[in-house]
Each structure stands twice: as structure tokens, then as C-alpha cells.
Design a protein around this nucleic acid. Structure first.
Lengths: 296, 296
DNA sequence: GTTCCGCATGAATCGATAG
DNA sequence: ACTATCGATTCATGCGGAA
């Protein structure tokens, strides 16, 4: 089942030489490894049904143009589909695919490539099980005459079968801590906003839960983006993949991120005792992640 | 420009007799009025470009089947499009159409009728300007093996033109603590950023911050659902239409809700000094709203 | 040790200007 | 006409240093 290292080296189009050097050091290429290359090609070397969770945040339109060439909105679906074909093949029938994505504004309108992608993924056989909302508390500032700041992203959940593994208890929020952290760590802004709402059911809600130990979350995730004070600026805060990894996998399960980028999801997977496969076309990123994983 | 009352009476399919009785009492049919009938037909009697805001929460799939016949998910788009054609016609070029909607789960999957509707509305000429998330903090409780509680709905914003009326100051929210220190002394970064703009006059930007204690909101709305008056089937808290009415209209502007249901949006519009047009196929609802408006 | 305060920095968007 | 670049706008967070 081992991937041939020599073969992998051929896959990298943009960074062929460094990818070769990078991949030569690899021993066990599909478990706990960071592989350099285009995920579409790299994944062809993996067997069917070997991954429990795919969680990824693909390069956004016109972003990271240095490494990915800046996919144009009108070409995004076409660009994505051959990759998701491979995702479908390598995912176990009980597995889940989480796609973190948000459409850009193009000429004052939300572009439709994300919703078109959902329809096309369904044609590939994916079931569109759910759409989670990631509410970014600290979104990018700015002011425009015709729109407000964009404070949310989609986390689309796709599955191969109606029955899939889900460990809801793993992400339950202890109510005591929840209430404490909610009340203590709740920013002054949130408090004021809550208090300003006379008819808010928030207080009532707390009293409903007071005697319970834990509560199940909803399909809205409240997470702040990480500040870039740290060495690696992550698109994803680590809490986002962490939540999905806990929810959809057990220890020793295999987590794949085909656009691993700064490596957040691989690091979190390792920290949680899962096996990880991270793929990225940029060998610099791959090296950094590999080093970070060793240090963990 | 007045609607002929006799004509309106023909439009109601389900409650013909009561609709006739109801509509006969009407004096000014397109300003501050509740009209009974199918909005598709009723709106044909309104002139072009006479409405500043359309805000509505249409009957959900397989809900309220007694009054609306329970539209099947697969027929939803087809059912909706002739109505939105009329919405487009009656809306002013500077106006906005807000559609509060959420797709149902059908056989363990999110149905695609909402995203298909977006694509079809664009074909009708609508611009898909934005998608707001309405985060329902105290959503309906429940537990399922394969999904969490649904705590959000879409509020889709459509426009006829790229330029439309938007009164952002009307919906500003309290700002965080950091503003205080910000006002005391601008940070070095801000100074530097300001100094780099020497061309465009002097510290104009600084004055933007003075006496500022409020911030512009984002496209995520934190509003609790009203648990209170459960007399009516529509779960549209008054805070939701209120927010959009403040944001997209001024006093004396015309607000239309073509599926006015329990009448929340009409009542809020009146309370805020806007003119309202509410349409519903159910004469019982119409009577109730009419009475409620009088009492206001 | 806490708490408080200052500060850099964002997976952004629009409109004007330039090619 | 159509695209590319640039300046202006804005606010929540976490870190580090100070009280």
C-alpha cells in the first residue's frame, strides 16, 4: 500500500525539484505524512476508502496567487471537480468531507461558484448533509456604501452514505464551563449587545440549561480567527478543524487535508491522536509543517 | 392607481368568499393596507417601481399546508418564480428584496431548492448582493443521531441595481472597550497610516473616530426568536424585519411583505413610520393583522 | 500573580486612476 | 470598454509590557 516516492516527485508542477527533494525523505507516505504535490495527482496513489475525514480550506479565489496561480471565480468549479472525484474515492463510506469556503464579492455581487459547486458535487455522488456556519468574531474591518463586513464562512458537510460516523458527545460543551467562559470571556461588546436586546432569549436560555452538565452544540460555530502574531499565519484557526476532527473521527482514524497550507489541520490531527495526511503544492509549506509536526 | 376591489376578490382561490368580504372594506389598496389573495395576482394590480423594500419569509416547504397547500421541495422554485417576477416589477430600482429562507432536510440531506432559487432569480435579472446569516440563539431544541440543531437561516439580499438605498447608521451597534483607548490616543500605526495620506488634506480620518461609540454591524445577525406570542404559525421575530426596514428604508417609504402571515413585518413597518403593504392568502390572518394595525 | 493598556494586523471591498 | 493597481476605510483579538 505504500506510495512510491519516486512517482510522487513527478506530480509537482510548480516546484518540481524541491518537491523531489522533499518527498525523497518520506517513509510512510499515506499515514502521518505531508506530501508535496497537486492533491489531484497525489491522491491517485492512495487506495480507495482509506480516509475517515477530509477537512480542508481550499485556496480561495484570487488568493495565494503566488502558490496556486489564483483561480478565477468562473473557473473555480471546473478546477475543483477532478479533485473532489479523488476525495470521493479515498473517503470511507462512513467518512465525512468538510469543505470550508466562502464566495467572494465580484462586481458588487456574491459570486455563485460555491452554490454551483454544491450542485456539481451532488452530481458526483456526494450527499450534501449539512451546512455549518463559521461565525468569525473578528472579521476583517472596513466600510463600504453597499455592504457590511463579512463575518461568516460556510463549512459544507458532504457524505458518501446517509449513515456516517458522528461522535456528538466529543464536542459537547460542559455547561458549567460554558456558562463561566461565556460570562467571563464574553467580550464587553457581546455583553453590551446582548443586554441591549430587551427581548433576547439568552438569559432564559441559560436557565433552561442550568441543571444539565453538557449541551449539544448547534450548526453555528463561534470562533475567532487567530491573530498573525504567531509564526505561521493560519487561514483556519486550529479550533475549527479540531471541532470537526473530534466530531467525525476517533483516535487512530485517518484525517486528510488536501490543501494543508500552513498545516493547522495536520497538527491538530496529530495532537488529537489521529493519523494525518497533508498535501500541499508548496514545498516550503510542506517542510515547515513537517518540522512543526516533529516538534509536537 | 387604485386596485379594483372586485378584481381582487377573484384572486383568492382558497377563501374566495371571505376574501371578497374582507377586501370590500378596503379604501387605499396599495398603501397601508392588508390585501387578501395570492401575491402573484394581487401584485399585478400594483404599478411598476412603487415599493422600497420587500421583506418576507415565505411559507416553508411542507409547512402550513392547511393554508398554502404544502409546496413540495421539488416544485418550490417553479412555484416561486412567477411571484418574484412581480416582486421585480413593483420594486423601485433603488429598492431591496430580502428573502428569509432556509432549506429543509429531505431524506438526510439539505435540499437544494434554495440555492437553485438563487441561480434562477439571477436569471430573472436580480443581483444577488449579499447573504446575511440570521443566527437564532435560542433555536428549537432537539437531538438527532446525524445532525445538530439548526440555529441559522439565510436572509438573501437581492437588488435590481448595484446602487441602492442603504442607511447603515440606522443599525449601528455598541462598540467594544478598545474604543476608549483608541480615542485617548491614536496608535502609532494609525498615525503612520494617517500621515501616509498627506495628499488628501489633514487628519480627516482622526475626526472619523472622535466621539465614536458605535460600530457598523456585520452580515451575521444575532437575534433571538420570540417565544412569546405563539398565536400565529410564522416564526419571524419582529427584530428581524425591523433590522432590515431600518437598514433599507426611511420614514414614509413603502414596505411590502407578499407573504405577510401573522403580520409581523406590517406591524413593524407601521411602528417605524413606514407605509406597508401586506398580502396573504388567508383572510383570517388578514383580518387579524388589520385589527392589530388599528390598535397600534 | 493579576489586571490593564497599547498596539499590529488581518483569506476584504469599493472607487478612482492608470494602462 | 475592460482590466490592473492603489489608496481609503474599519474593528476585534491576542500578545507583551506596565501598573
Amino acid at each position: 500500500m505504500k506510495v512510491k516516492v519516486e512517482k510522487l516527485a513527478k506530480l509537482n508542477l510548480l516546484h518540481k525539484k524541491t518537491a523531489t527533494e522533499y518527498n525523497e525523505g518520506m517513509i510512510e507516505p499515506y499515514s502521518n505524512s505531508i506530501i508535496c504535490g497537486d492533491c489531484e495527482e497525489v491522491l491517485k496513489n492512495l487506495p480507495d476508502n482509506c480516509v475517515d475525514l477530509i477537512v480542508t480550506s481550499p485556496p480561495y479565489v484570487q488568493c495565494r496567487k503566488n502558490t496556486y496561480g489564483g483561480i478565477h471565480p468562473d473557473e473555480y468549479v471546473e478546477w475543483f471537480l477532478p479533485k473532489s472525484t479523488q476525495f470521493f474515492r479515498v473517503l470511507k463510506p462512513t467518512g465525512t468531507f468538510i469543505l470550508n469556503i466562502k464566495e467572494k464579492v465580484v462586481t458588487s455581487e456574491r459570486h455563485t461558484y460555491v452554490i454551483e459547486l454544491i450542485l456539481e458535487l451532488k452530481k458526483q455522488g456526494w450527499l450534501w448533509t449539512e451546512e455549518f456556519v463559521w461565525h468569525k468574531k473578528n472579521c476583517y474591518p472596513g466600510k463600504w456604501p453597499n455592504r457590511f463586513r463579512d463575518a461568516w464562512e460556510r463549512c459544507l458537510q458532504f457524505n458518501k452514505e446517509k449513515k456516517f460516523n458522528m461522535y456528538q458527545e466529543a464536542v459537547m460543551v460542559p455547561m458549567g464551563d460554558w456558562a463561566k467562559s461565556r460570562l467571563k470571556k464574553l467580550s464587553a461588546t457581546d455583553k453590551r449587545r446582548d443586554e441591549s436586546k430587551v427581548k433576547s432569549g439568552f438569559g432564559k436560555n441559560i436557565s433552561n440549561w442550568v441543571d444539565r452538565d453538557k449541551a449539544y452544540p448547534t450548526n453555528v460555530l463561534h470562533l475567532a480567527t487567530e491573530c498573525a502574531n504567531k509564526n505561521h499565519s493560519a487561514a483556519f484557526p486550529s479550533t475549527l478543524p479540531e471541532w470537526f476532527i473530534k466530531l467525525f473521527t476517533e483516535k487512530h482514524d485517518v484525517v486528510l487535508d488536501p490543501f494543508v497550507g500552513s498545516g493547522t489541520s495536520a497538527l491538530v490531527a496529530k495532537k488529537l491522536g489521529r493519523k494525518y495526511i497533508g498535501i500541499d503544492i508548496n514545498p516550503e509549506y510542506c517542510k515547515m509543517i513537517e518540522n512543526a509536526c516533529k516538534e509536537l
